[in-house]
Structure formats: C-alpha cells, structure tokens
C-alpha cells in the first residue's frame, strides 16, 4: 500500500530549514565586516588575534590533559570492574551518570567553596592548581560519555578470556593493560575522546567561574564587545564540533569494517 509521503517530506523540509538557516545566517553575518562587500575580514581579525590563539591553545591543552587523565582513570577502572568487581558495576554506573543530573554550574559552585584558598586543599590558590581543578572538572563532565564508551567497548570483547589468555602466556598486569586491553578498546576510547574534546573546547561555565584564560571566556568577551567576530567564531566552533563528530563516525566505521573482516 502506498501512503502519502507529504507529511514526512514536510517535516524534513521544516527541520532542514530550521537547522540550516542559522548556519547560513551566521556565515553571512561573519562576512559582513567590511562595509558594502563580503569578505573574510572577520576571520582574519579573529585568527590573528593573539588572545584567540592563546585561549584556543590553552583549551586544546586542557582538553588533551582531560582526555589523557580521563582515559588513565576510566579504562583501568572499567576493566577492573568487568574483570573482578562486577557487583560494583551498578554503583559505578550510577556515579558516572551523576554529572548528567547535577548541572555543571552546581558542580563548579561546589568547587569554589571546597577548593578555595582557605580550604584543606587550596587548589584555587595558584594558577597551576586551578588548571588542575579545571581539568578534573572537565573529567567529571566527560565522565558519563567516556565511561559509557569504554564500558561498551570492553563488553564487546571478552575481557576475562583475553586476560586469562594473556596471563597463561606469562604477561604481567602492565603488559595486559597496555598491550592487550587498551588496543582492543582503542576505538571506543577514541570516540569518547573526540566527544570530550567537543565538549571541553568551548566550555564556558567552569572556565569562566574558575577564571581561566580558556576559549569559552574568550568567546564571551568577544561576543560582548564585537559585532562580526562572534559569528566567525561560531562558524569556527561549529566546524570543530563537526570535525570531532566526523572523526567519531570515521573511527566507528573502521571498527565495523575490521569486525566484519575478522
């Protein structure tokens, strides 16, 4: 039986318009900097701005630190839970989901009071300490995505058998973790990493309240003071997000291909 396709097409058309018009408008707006002509002036100004370079570099660095420390914390934990402490899984899963429940603004509000200069661990007292706190904060925000990705990856391989096989061949724990487990969850870790990068790179709330020179606060500064540059930055941010998601897709597809090839 043939049903009318009018409704679905209409939904698609409205959706496409709603999603594309702001992007087109932003791009158009970003080209208006020079009066009477379209130009890439806004991009030139933004990209040449030393504060852009500094803040983007800073956020990239923090993002990489977040990913590395997150992976080092989460992969062994998830592995160990799968291998030895399965009865702790519900508790750990619950904890990893909490950052979705507790808004970031609340978490950082808590940090400001627990790690200020008069507390036991005065992380906020020094810039390096605050950088560390920001990284930990981002690890917390990324926890649900990172843990979920790694856990799914671990469940899709038979961790116990792999471990026993490696043990029977005489491998030690370090070898097992870094030579056997990590490579097998590489794809899952990578997709978690790119998602983390996308979340961290433009993050505003934590960086702003911890007063770090990150890309998010820079965006806010430009947004409050300039006309055309914010649009250019929005396009840049969109491209970065798109690139992260694209990389996740590419790596995901690679995995499917190799799985099928096995």
């Amino acid at each position: 039986m043939k049903r009318s396709r009018l409704g679905p097409w209409l939904a698609m058309a409205i959706g496409t318009a709603y999603f594309l018009i702001p992007l087109i408008a932003t791009f158009e707006f970003s080209l208006r900097m020079k009066r009477g002509e379209y130009s890439l002036e806004a991009y030139r100004v933004v990209l040449a701005d030393p504060r852009f370079q500094a803040s983007f570099g800073y956020s990239t660095l923090i993002a990489i630190a977040t990913i590395l420390m997150g992976v080092l914390l989460i992969v062994p934990t998830a592995y160990w839970i799968e291998l030895k402490l399965r009865n702790l899984r519900p508790l750990v899963e619950f904890i990893t989901l909490l950052p979705l429940v507790i808004p970031a603004i609340v978490i950082v509000f808590g940090y400001l009071h627990t790690y200020n200069s008069s507390s036991w661990i005065p992380l906020i007292a020094t810039p390096r300490g605050t950088d560390l706190l920001l990284t930990f904060g981002y690890m917390t925000l990324a926890l649900p995505y990172m843990y979920r990705a790694v856990d799914t990856g671990l469940r899709s391989i038979d961790v116990r058998t792999l471990t026993e096989a490696a043990e029977s061949l005489g491998a030690g724990w370090g070898t097992i973790l870094f030579k056997v487990i990590f490579p097998n969850v590489r794809v899952a870790v990578l997709s978690g990493a790119f998602l983390t990068f996308a979340i961290v790179i433009g993050e505003f709330t934590l960086a702003s309240l911890l007063d770090r020179p990150a890309f998010g606060p820079y965006l806010q500064l430009v947004g409050a003071n300039r006309a055309y540059e914010p649009s250019a930055l929005a396009i840049v941010a969109f491209v970065v997000t798109w690139a992260c998601m694209g990389l996740i897709q590419i790596f995901g597809r690679d995995r499917r291909a190799t799985m099928a090839g096995r």
Binding site: F19, G202, L219, P230, A234, C244
Partner: peptide, 22 residues
C-alpha cells in the same frame, strides 16, 4: 543522524552567536 550528533553538542556561546546573527 550525523547532523543531530553535531547539533546536540553545538550548544553554548557559539550557538548564542549564531542565533544573534540570525
């Protein structure tokens, strides 16, 4: 689906800028 993956993570200041420009 790919676009939704991107857009659901495209929040915050850049999104605000985009709607201001629109």
């Amino acid at each position: 689906m790919t676009f939704c993956g991107v857009a659901s993570n495209f929040a915050g200041l850049p999104l605000a800028f985009a709607f201001l420009a629109t």
